[in-house]
Simulated assay, not measured.
Amino acid sequence: MKRLPSPAPAGELVEQLAPVQAEDYRPDREGWAWRLVVFLRITAGLAMLKGLYHWSAVCGIGVSADQGFDAQSLSWQTATVFFAVIDLVAAVGLWLATPWGAVVWLTGSVTMIVVQVFFPLIYGLHWIVVAGLVGLIAAYLFFAIQAAREQPN
């Protein structure tokens, strides 16, 4: 009786679809995969700072007692806690150059853009934040596409 080859584990299939692997980062390596990892690590630092900023708002650091977390609206509180958590999770995933890190970061970034544009009563409308996030998303897509193109088939 002829045996059929066993299918590849799901983890291997996911790794084949990822545009870059964390072990692709080597200082001596040139190319788009290396540039993508550097971009992801810089973005991870920015996401970490953004998450810590939101946690400082939750903890009331740098504000008077009458402007603290409890004095804010429920929508502000909800959005702040959401971004405090998702930005730090995204920072870890981006630093490790994992596919889920990019997904979490993209989710948080698109959500922040939506909150800024469509719900300005929560944080106010800050076009610099929107433009910065759109620019980072566009740069990520550019680096990811270029890194995927140079991967062997």
Rank of each mutant, 00 (worst) to 15 (best):
residue 1 M to I: 10
residue 2 K to S: 12
residue 2 K to H: 14
residue 2 K to T: 12
residue 4 L to F: 09
residue 4 L to N: 12
residue 9 P to F: 03
residue 9 P to I: 04
residue 10 A to N: 05
residue 13 L to G: 05
residue 15 E to R: 12
residue 16 Q to T: 04
residue 18 A to E: 14
residue 18 A to T: 08
residue 20 V to F: 09
residue 21 Q to G: 10
residue 22 A to F: 09
residue 22 A to S: 15
residue 23 E to I: 09
residue 26 R to L: 14
residue 30 E to N: 10
residue 30 E to H: 11
residue 34 W to D: 02
residue 35 R to V: 03
residue 38 V to P: 00
residue 39 F to C: 03
residue 41 R to I: 08
residue 41 R to M: 10
residue 41 R to T: 13
residue 42 I to N: 08
residue 45 G to C: 05
residue 45 G to H: 02
residue 45 G to V: 01
residue 47 A to V: 03
residue 48 M to A: 15
residue 49 L to Q: 03
residue 50 K to T: 15
residue 50 K to R: 14
residue 52 L to A: 15
residue 54 H to R: 11
residue 55 W to L: 15
residue 58 V to H: 12
residue 58 V to R: 11
residue 60 G to I: 07
residue 60 G to M: 05
residue 60 G to V: 05
residue 62 G to H: 03
residue 63 V to G: 09
residue 65 A to N: 05
residue 70 D to E: 14
residue 74 L to H: 05
residue 77 Q to A: 01
residue 80 T to I: 08
residue 82 F to C: 07
residue 82 F to P: 02
residue 84 A to T: 11
residue 91 A to G: 04
residue 95 W to V: 07
residue 95 W to R: 02
residue 96 L to C: 07
residue 96 L to G: 05
residue 98 T to C: 04
residue 98 T to F: 01
residue 105 W to F: 05
residue 106 L to K: 03
residue 107 T to G: 15
residue 107 T to D: 15
residue 108 G to I: 04
residue 108 G to A: 08
residue 110 V to G: 06
residue 111 T to K: 08
residue 111 T to L: 06
residue 112 M to Y: 07
residue 113 I to A: 00
residue 113 I to F: 01
residue 115 V to H: 04
residue 116 Q to G: 01
residue 117 V to L: 11
residue 121 L to C: 00
residue 121 L to H: 06
residue 124 G to T: 07
residue 125 L to S: 06
residue 126 H to K: 12
residue 127 W to Q: 12
residue 131 A to K: 13
residue 131 A to I: 14
residue 133 L to G: 02
residue 134 V to K: 00
residue 138 A to H: 04
residue 139 A to D: 06
residue 140 Y to P: 11
residue 140 Y to K: 05
residue 141 L to F: 14
residue 142 F to I: 13
residue 143 F to G: 01
residue 144 A to T: 07
residue 144 A to C: 06
residue 146 Q to W: 06
residue 148 A to L: 13
residue 149 R to C: 14
residue 150 E to W: 02
residue 151 Q to V: 08
residue 151 Q to G: 02
residue 152 P to Q: 05
residue 152 P to F: 01
residue 152 P to V: 07
residue 152 P to T: 01
residue 153 N to L: 13
